[in-house]
Simulated scan of single mutants.
Amino acid sequence: MPVASPYAARLAAIPVERKTLELPTGPAAYWVYGDAAAPLTLLMVHGYRGDHHGLEPVVAHLDGVRVISPDLPGFGETPPLRAAGKGAEGAAAEHTLDAYADWLTAFAAAVAPGAPILGHSFGSIVVAAAVAGELETPRVILVNPIGAPALEGPRGILTRLAVFYYWAGARLPKALGDALLRNRVIVRVMSASMAKTRDKTLRAFIHDQHDRYFSLFGDRDALHEGFVTSVSNDVRRFAPQIAQPTLLIAAEKDDITPIEAERHLQTLFPDAELVEIPGVGHLIHYETPQQAASAITRFLRPSDADTR
């Protein structure tokens, strides 16, 4: 039975519409939250193995902002990438960082041209790569940014085990591989390792979210390719090329990128601000969405803050 969201009441007050965009690499499912007449639109990109649902607690606290949130290729309701021009039954395309960045650039140009953009976790790498390339945006927001190689982080050994896990899931016979990758015990271990809150109700909600959405990936090959992409890249590579004002929202207890690495990441951008949230880890979007939304709103509306 689904666990009630602590943010359900706020989210229920926001109009939402599901849409589909046809791209050369296949259909893209996305959700539009808020009033079409809102003065500001923000494009949000979720992290690895998640989908648009993960960022909804942040959406719930962004008053007066229209949000467009797609499911990345291979996750949620967006199918894995196909070779351009091959259609739904065409040959599968490899899920490299360039492929994700090109997909995001095309998506943004079609549905949110010129909008500020936000990326969480793996989404921070995709956003950074796209903005350093051809994606046009006035401001960049990275939440729990991957600011250092995952294999060198405080849980480097666990990351190496995860590399083997996803490799095995892709190589085993299909039934066994799918069962391994969708195993509820393993998903729960992942969820418990990331959650830092001691609030039992919030922890139950986080675990329920991961139970419901972590296994909605398109196929095991895309999942494996996405994981390899996620651990083979980080935001540092692209930071010097991002001239736009950038907001980094980092967590004091993030096990994937230590806060010291996030502080160093800030220095690599030409124009970046770092907001540190204490007592939280890699799940800012679930555990402290109000704090994140407050920082985002101030960053997107600097003139509002100046008049207070």
Rank of each mutant, 00 (worst) to 15 (best):
N233D: 10
R237N: 04
E252S: 09
I249W: 04
I256E: 10
D234P: 01
F227E: 06
A239P: 00
F238A: 06
F238Y: 15
P258G: 12
F227Y: 15
P258E: 05
D234V: 11
V235P: 08
I249H: 06
T257G: 02
S230N: 14
T229H: 07
V235N: 05
L223A: 09
L223G: 02
Q244P: 10
F238N: 02
G226R: 03
P245N: 10
T257M: 09
A251F: 00
T246R: 02
G226W: 06
H224V: 13
V235T: 06
N233S: 13
T257I: 06
P258Y: 00
L223T: 00
K253C: 03
I242P: 02
Q241N: 12
T257E: 04
R237C: 07
D255E: 12
E225I: 04
L247N: 04
S230W: 15
K253S: 09
V231Q: 14
A222N: 10
A222Y: 04
H224W: 12
L223P: 00
K253L: 14
T246W: 03
P240T: 04
A243I: 09
A222R: 02
T229N: 07
P240I: 10
I256R: 12
H224Q: 15
L247W: 06
T229Y: 04
V231I: 15
A239G: 03
R236Q: 14
F227I: 13
I256Y: 12
H224M: 14
V231G: 02
D255N: 09
R236N: 07
K253N: 07
I249N: 02
P240G: 09
